[in-house]
Amino acid sequence: LRLEVKLGQGCFGEVWMGTWNGTTRVAIKTLKPGTMSPEAFLQEAQVMKKLRHEKLVQLYAVVSEEPIYIVTEYMSKGSLLDFLKGETGKYLRLPQLVDMAAQIASGMAYVERMNYVHRDLRAANILVGENLVCKVADFGLARLIEDNEYTARQGAKFPIKWTAPEAALYGRFTIKSDVWSFGILLTELTTKGRVPYPGMVNREVLDQVERGYRMPCPPECPESLHDLMCQCWRKEPEERPTFEYLQAFL
């Protein structure tokens, strides 16, 4: 395994491009020591290896001592969030954005069929390849993070704006909380990567959403798509659509 080009840095580690087995181009995620327990990670990795779908980033291998390494397929255009905010983002029109959403829903419909939960679905965790191919990455890892700023769910590192209220408040993460996050991801797509709930801080978002506030229809977004977002944001988790439905609708 060779680490060649550093692609990015996040709160919990770095991402590199490299070569595996001398020939395969891969992405390598390294986790800061202390982010998660190697034992817990190894268990999760076994499950992650079983998830194989064309719209999920394929896991190739893991190094399960500290520092933990995760070796996955390489996606040339990086994260969907950076892609939307970058040069190419300007030229993306609604049909392409909807197609990308459908690809993500397709990957998540598979996660749904496998009775698995992602827990951290957002544009930053979707990767883009050639020809606007989108794949879901980092599934299941969020559960293992041991950082206090994260586990408190009120901490600075927790993605509260993407998280369903029952998950943020009571830790009830299910495929239905993933559906909520998918609704937020749809706003990221239609606004080219704007942060959700602009002008609001995490605490406010939690309070307002509890009181029934939902983001309005983004500019140039059809009402039918906003309606779909609002279905994803129904207060009762069981009233939210399935990913199978979302995939078919898109």
Results as ranks from 00 to 15, higher is better:
195 V>S: 14
144 L>F: 11
28 I>H: 01
15 V>D: 01
184 I>A: 06
170 Y>T: 08
219 P>H: 12
191 T>S: 09
174 T>K: 14
184 I>S: 03
221 C>T: 09
242 T>E: 14
117 V>G: 03
244 E>H: 11
138 D>V: 03
247 Q>S: 10
115 N>R: 14
210 E>K: 09
242 T>R: 12
174 T>A: 11
154 Q>D: 07
56 L>V: 14
25 R>M: 11
140 G>P: 01
67 P>T: 03
84 L>N: 04
39 E>A: 12
38 P>A: 13
65 E>V: 13
165 P>L: 09
32 K>N: 03
113 R>Y: 14
226 H>C: 09
203 R>Y: 14
143 R>W: 01
222 P>T: 07
75 M>Y: 06
2 R>T: 02
164 A>H: 01
46 Q>K: 06
75 M>D: 04
71 V>F: 01
208 Q>P: 06
154 Q>G: 07
82 D>R: 06
108 M>H: 09
156 A>F: 08
183 G>N: 00
88 T>L: 10
133 V>A: 11
219 P>T: 11
118 H>V: 00
86 G>K: 10
54 E>A: 12
176 K>W: 09
182 F>M: 09
212 G>S: 07
222 P>W: 06
100 M>F: 10
155 G>A: 04
51 L>M: 06
64 S>Y: 10
65 E>N: 09
44 E>Y: 00
27 A>E: 01
153 R>Y: 05
22 G>E: 10
124 A>E: 13
63 V>S: 05
240 R>E: 01
247 Q>A: 11
174 T>L: 15
201 V>S: 15
123 A>G: 10
112 E>T: 15
222 P>I: 08
80 L>N: 04
27 A>L: 01
188 E>S: 02
63 V>K: 06
71 V>G: 03
153 R>H: 11
130 E>Y: 14
249 F>V: 07
154 Q>M: 09
76 S>H: 11
128 V>L: 06
176 K>M: 11
65 E>R: 12
214 R>H: 13
148 N>R: 06
202 N>A: 05
50 K>S: 11
156 A>L: 05
79 S>P: 04
69 Y>F: 13
52 R>G: 14
46 Q>P: 02
235 K>W: 07
226 H>D: 10
12 F>V: 01
168 A>I: 06
222 P>E: 04
229 M>A: 06
21 N>T: 13
128 V>W: 05
214 R>I: 12
30 T>M: 15
108 M>C: 13
212 G>E: 06
219 P>C: 14
117 V>E: 00
25 R>I: 12
20 W>E: 15
18 G>P: 02
134 C>G: 06
245 Y>G: 13
47 V>M: 06
198 P>C: 09
109 A>C: 13
18 G>T: 09
102 A>F: 10
238 E>V: 05
95 P>M: 07
111 V>C: 05
200 M>V: 05
85 K>A: 08
172 R>V: 09
151 T>H: 14
157 K>N: 05
183 G>K: 04
99 D>Y: 15
39 E>V: 08
245 Y>T: 12
91 Y>V: 08
